[in-house]
């Protein structure tokens, strides 16, 4: 894995000129960043939800809903893929 890292880096550096940077590539980055943001948001909400559930079982439903709300971020970002 580590032996080929320099080669990959070289390929990326040579390949990533502006001519090769297509619309779908940009869309992929957009979706990827949105997914990261979603993950970050869900990390906090998820751990709070688990904490609340540990104290009181009946909060399971609410916790689940609150946890998936940031999912909208990545779903909306996915729209970008269909626009390009």
């Amino acid at each position: 894995m580590f032996e080929i890292t320099p080669e990959i880096a070289m390929a990326v550096l040579q390949g990533a000129t502006l001519e090769n940077f297509t619309d779908s590539g940009a869309a992929a980055i957009a979706v990827g960043l949105a997914a990261l943001a979603t993950g970050y948001a869900q990390r906090g909400i998820g751990s709070a939800a688990v904490g609340a559930m540990a104290e009181d079982d009946s909060t399971f439903g609410k916790g689940l809903i609150l946890t998936v709300i940031p999912e909208t971020l990545v779903i909306l970002a996915l729209v970008v893929v269909f626009l390009v």
Binding site: G44, I45, S47, A48, A49, V50, G51, A52, A54, E55, D56
Partner: peptide, 14 residues
């Protein structure tokens, strides 16, 4: 640190 988790539990106990 994990303030979210601790907070949720602590508030329930509070």
């Amino acid at each position: 640190s994990n303030p979210e988790y601790v907070n949720a539990r602590v508030r329930a106990r509070r």
